[in-house]
Design a protein around this nucleic acid. Structure first.
Lengths: 210, 210
DNA sequence: TCGTGGCTTTACCAAATGGTAAAAAACCAG
DNA sequence: CTGGTTTTTTACCATTTGGTAAAGCCACGA
């Protein structure tokens, strides 16, 4: 018996899966997993609810598919950090890439934040197998830079956490920031400038202790 | 006709309202507004669902009551920042208070994060009327300190955002941090030390530019 | 053009969920 | 005690929601 051969997806399948993922990202990132309904996703995707289920096994399957894709995009900027480059440049470039992701992909950031806030119920393995190794690797790189005196004394792991905290904050807490700092007063330019200056100061080896 | 006189709440009422708030905080902070159910809250509070409704008008009323109480506790640390004190001391003390709140009241932090993440649907007025004035006031104080040369050049509003981002991150992203930095490796002590050192460096007026 | 297999819709369903009505129980001032 | 008031329980209900069954539609290769 020919067991469940995975057939090549048709053009229609490709198109509709993409539409569903886009719609699901919109809805899940705004309402969280339980707050989102299949009807909302179906509406946003311009198709009927049973049609959704035809393409994905169910609500959870859609969410998982979304998280899977997200993980790759999310790790990419950190991957790019080059151990052979100039320490300060490399870290500041990473910070800039993260800021750009917050600006360009706030929904992805919020989807991730929602998942972690609730204890990462559907992401535990991803964090262990995807994020943790990369985190440890890059923390070690930074630790070397610090040991060589090419960066100010700093705990590499705490530094990475701080970078995530600040850059993702601009996407995740957008609703709050909009109230406190209206666009007319200061927008992304001010945020970019502040964040870069902050980390530059923090990481530059002090003249005094040289 | 005597219209809806607000009677003094009985002992039982006081006790049960408190139990409900505690239970609701637990459940809402973990699952978000829509993810939480009245049954869960009733269970956690050790009473029946209709009994909940006897004390609060409904699910939304409980949530709103929780957010109202939260707002006060949340603003307190910033209120304490004294314009007459030493700039660096005042800000670092504020940072420490915020870190303590993340450690002692992570559920409150997550409740707030959940609400903001979803666009602050039940908190808009609170942000405008409670948070914004205080934010503007304290930002002005910091701006003065900077103008007087008693703090390094920095955008006061972005500074406050960064403080919130980093300190609250330790509560909100706890699930992620637990995976990346196991307790045996580094706990709250390391976090406190890193955060304080970071802001100290960032805010200290450079010797060079004195 | 005519099947055939992939795609879509219509009509449902069972469980979960927020909430209500009203009786029963507990409480408490006189 | 006792009568009225507050509190709690039991038994429901309507809606929402994730999901299914099966009929119908449609594209496309022979």
């Amino acid at each position: 018996m020919p067991e469940e051969v995975a057939r090549k997806p048709s053009r229609i399948q490709l198109r509709n899966r993409k539409r569903i993922m886009e719609a699901a990202l919109e809805v899940f990132s705004q309402h969280g997993y339980r707050g989102a309904t299949l009807d909302q996703i179906a509406d946003a995707a311009g198709m009927s609810k049973p049609n959704l289920i035809y393409y994905f096994d169910g609500k959870e399957a859609i969410h998982v598919a979304l998280l899977n894709r997200l993980m790759e995009d999310w790790l990419a900027p950190l991957h790019e950090m080059d151990p052979g480059g100039d320490p300060l440049d490399e870290i500041l470039a990473y910070v800039r890439r993260k800021m750009e992701m917050s600006r360009e992909f706030p929904r992805e950031s919020r989807l991730f934040a929602n998942e972690i806030l609730q204890g990462a119920p559907r992401m535990g393995p991803h964090l262990e197998r995807g994020l943790k190794p990369l985190f440890d690797e890059k923390a070690a790189v930074i630790a070397d830079w610090v040991a060589e005196g090419r960066l100010a004394q700093i705990d590499p792991r705490q530094l990475l956490l701080s970078i995530w905290a600040i850059t993702q904050h601009y996407a995740d807490f957008d609703a709050q920031i909009r109230v406190l700092i209206p666009d007319e007063v200061a927008g992304w330019d001010a945020a970019f400038a502040h964040v870069e200056a902050m980390f530059r100061t923090m990481l530059t080896v002090s003249e005094r202790s040289g």
